[in-house]
Design a protein around this nucleic acid. Structure first.
Length: 379
DNA sequence: TACGCGTGGCG
DNA sequence: TCGCCAAGCGT
């Protein structure tokens, strides 16, 4: 940190002033955002849209979130509308975005906002943090962006910007308290929401993990790491554990009409509440059950190939079998018609498994490029 | 504190 | 190709 500058109470620090000035000129335009000009005219973003976007953006890129955000807000324009939506509809709309506990919490949180808070989000950190799915970061982001509260917003971008700015060598996440204190000290009292978004924009576009564009950075003059030429060494991270490999099998059953047999996973845990074709248990043992013997019922199972999918903490190798069968769905399962499959709450890994067995099955039917209704894929 | 929890894009 | 990583939260 540079020598502290003497300034009057409400005057932003030179760093914050430079950052806000840069934000005024270079801010990103995003569907959930109110631009700096409107913000300074007193306009605030809709707390519902800020909340929804922040939940979607947890560990997820802006590019991936955009279409989901548009679909959600078009279908459920208010928190009250979302609160009354069937959980299954929300899970289906969330399918593909990942971290599905976010979708379950989304519904619960909307209900609580309606029941406990009359349909309005709390405007303080404590009230926000009491809601499911809202932690330190999201509470601060909503408080600052939607309610202009002087909250220190610390996400991965801010961690990177601040550890470089102040050359903080403590590994993250242990450095979190120190980072938060630095942010709080920099906070401009009159524009906390813009400051939060400015810091995140800087991290996303200039102060990037690799090859940061320091010559374009509005606060490089105050950056310790830049002056040392060590910017790419921050933030310091603890070494990560190796990923174990798990193996299993998925059984994609297709009937004469092209319907696919699906079942629902347990509500909690991995891919909780989502749908899938029947699979074996996934085991880290190399000799895990990947055989036809593990099929949910006897059929002429054909080995369709293997899907490899990397989760956060393990790698899954899923051997895929395919069969034409004509029988009622077992208890707890259902035949999902050709038209319905694309709209099911299928995680990406399960879509891939089904595609491996039946190319085109999870794409929307009736459009060019879809699988012809008479097409057979048996080899 | 450390782990469980998805997915897609990028160099 | 593949490891890294992206606006974290809950337990």
């Amino acid at each position: 940190m540079n020598a502290p500058t003497i300034r009057t109470k409400d005057e932003p620090s030179p760093i914050a002033a430079a950052l806000l000035d840069w934000y005024d000129r270079h801010h990103r335009r995003l569907p959930w955002r109110v631009g700096p000009a409107d913000a300074r005219a007193g306009l605030r973003a809709d707390p519902y849209r800020v909340w929804l976007s922040e939940i979607m953006l947890q560990q997820t890129t802006v590019q991936a979130v955009k279409p989901y955000f548009e679909r959600f807000t078009a279908r459920w324009p208010t928190v009250a509308a979302l609160a009354t939506a069937p959980t299954d509809d929300i899970m289906k709309a969330w399918a593909g975005l990942g971290y599905y506990s976010r979708a379950r919490n989304l519904k619960t949180c909307a209900e609580l906002v309606v029941e406990r808070h009359g349909g309005r989000f709390p405007d303080d950190l404590e009230g926000l943090k009491a809601l499911p799915g809202i932690g330190d970061y999201t509470a601060a982001a909503i408080a600052a962006i939607a309610f202009d509260r002087p909250a220190a917003v610390v996400d991965g971008n801010v961690e990177r910007v601040v550890t470089r700015l102040c050359a903080i060598a403590t590994p993250v996440p242990a450095a979190k308290p120190e980072i938060r204190a630095r942010v709080q000290a920099l906070l401009p009292v009159d524009r906390p929401g813009d400051f939060a978004q400015a810091t995140m924009d800087l991290g996303a576009t200039i102060c990037t993990p690799r090859r940061p564009a320091c010559p374009l950075c509005p606060i490089s003059h105050g950056c310790e790491a830049f002056s040392d030429g060590t910017q790419e060494t921050f933030p310091v991270k603890a070494p990560k554990a190796v990923k174990p490999v798990r193996v299993g099998a998925a059984f994609v059953a297709e009937n004469a009409d092209g319907a696919v047999l699906l079942r629902k996973r347990a509500e909690k845990g991995l891919l909780g509440g989502m749908s899938e074709p029947p699979t074996t248990q996934w085991t880290s043992r190399a000799d895990g059950a990947t055989d036809i013997d593990a099929a949910p019922f006897a059929a002429k199972w054909r080995d369709a190939g293997t899907v490899t999918h990397v989760f956060t903490h393990f790698e899954l190798r899923l051997r895929v079998f395919h069969a034409r069968v004509d029988r009622p769905a077992p208890t707890g399962a259902w035949w999902s018609s050709r038209e319905d499959v694309s709209g099911e709450a299928l995680p990406t890994v399960m879509k891939h498994a089904i595609e491996t067995a039946i190319p085109g099955a999870t794409r929307k039917p009736g459009v060019a490029g879809g699988r012809p209704s008479t097409g057979r894929n048996d080899q």
